[in-house]
């Protein structure tokens, strides 16, 4: 029997064949992925259509709703897709979870395409109120003529809220200002400020003349965007 060729030619031939098989294999795999994504796309769009057609039923039966939502979550369909989604997450890193309604509105507008529906501040307020129902993650704090939107869970009570309101004009507040403005005992003021520091909402400035100032990045950025320098803000009397 003749020995099978093992010369350089044979090796090269074998390598070429292997490479060709591999290439062909890759093409097949790619085809399959394309096919599957197409099918998934179709399924997704059918599911979305189904969701919008049978809105009433989905709402009525809680059992059906749970199952339907689980299914949607598995394949990445948003059953509530209405194009009115809110991204407040941005504010988290910078401001410890607080952002003025104004700034949020600007961000939402700039984040949407030019053909998108207009979103008013009122729309935003409604959306946030709805989110609030889902837990204490979101909230609105009235300050001055506008609102601060809170996007991280922080337990804020009435005391914290009024202190934020007091800080609104200048971006900061001091223990003395709280004592005078709100007629509180020193302990109460310190307690509230400590809590705001602990929640990461306030920053302390201990180089200020007189007493320490407690600053709120969210309010500060609103002041600077109105081209008010901190010195100017400092001079404004509460």
């Amino acid at each position: 029997m003749r020995r099978r060729g093992v010369g350089a030619g044979a090796v090269a031939k074998k390598k070429l064949a292997e490479a060709k098989y591999k290439e062909r294999g890759n093409v097949l795999a790619e085809d399959q992925i394309v096919q599957m994504s197409k099918q998934l796309e179709t399924f997704k769009s059918n599911l979305e259509e189904f969701a919008s057609k049978h809105k009433q039923e989905i709402r009525k039966s809680s059992e059906f709703r749970v199952q339907f939502q689980e299914m949607c979550a598995t394949i990445g369909v948003d059953p509530l897709a209405s194009g009115k989604r809110l991204l407040v997450g941005d504010a988290r890193c910078r401001n410890g979870g607080l952002i003025t309604l104004n700034e949020l509105h600007q961000r939402v507008l700039s984040g949407r395409g030019k053909y998108a529906q207009d979103v008013s501040q009122d729309d935003l307020m409604r959306a946030i109120k709805k989110l609030k129902v889902m837990g204490n993650g979101f909230g609105m704090i009235p300050v001055g003529g506008s609102y601060l939107v809170q996007s991280v869970p922080a337990e804020l009570n009435m005391d914290h809220t009024v202190v934020l309101q007091l800080a609104e004009k200048k971006g900061f507040v001091t223990v003395g200002e709280i004592k005078e403005g709100l007629k509180w005992e020193k302990e109460r003021a310190c307690h509230v400020l400590d809590h705001l520091l602990k929640e990461g909402l306030a920053w302390v400035d201990s180089q200020a003349a007189g007493e320490s100032q407690y600053w709120f990045p969210a309010l500060f950025s609103e002041l600077t965007s109105r081209d008010v320098t901190p010195e100017e803000a400092n001079q404004m009397s509460p």
């Binding site: 410890g96 900061f172 520091l197 602990k198 990461g200 920053w203 302390v204 400035d205 201990s206 180089q207 200020a208 100032q213 600053w215 990045p217 500060f220 950025s221 600077t224 320098t229 901190p230």
Partner: peptide, 17 residues
């Protein structure tokens, strides 16, 4: 922006901050 934010120049007590 932090450069003009007065408390940026005070080491913050809160660990996360």
């Amino acid at each position: 922006w932090q450069y003009n934010f007065p408390p940026f120049f005070t080491l913050q007590p809160n660990v996360d901050t």
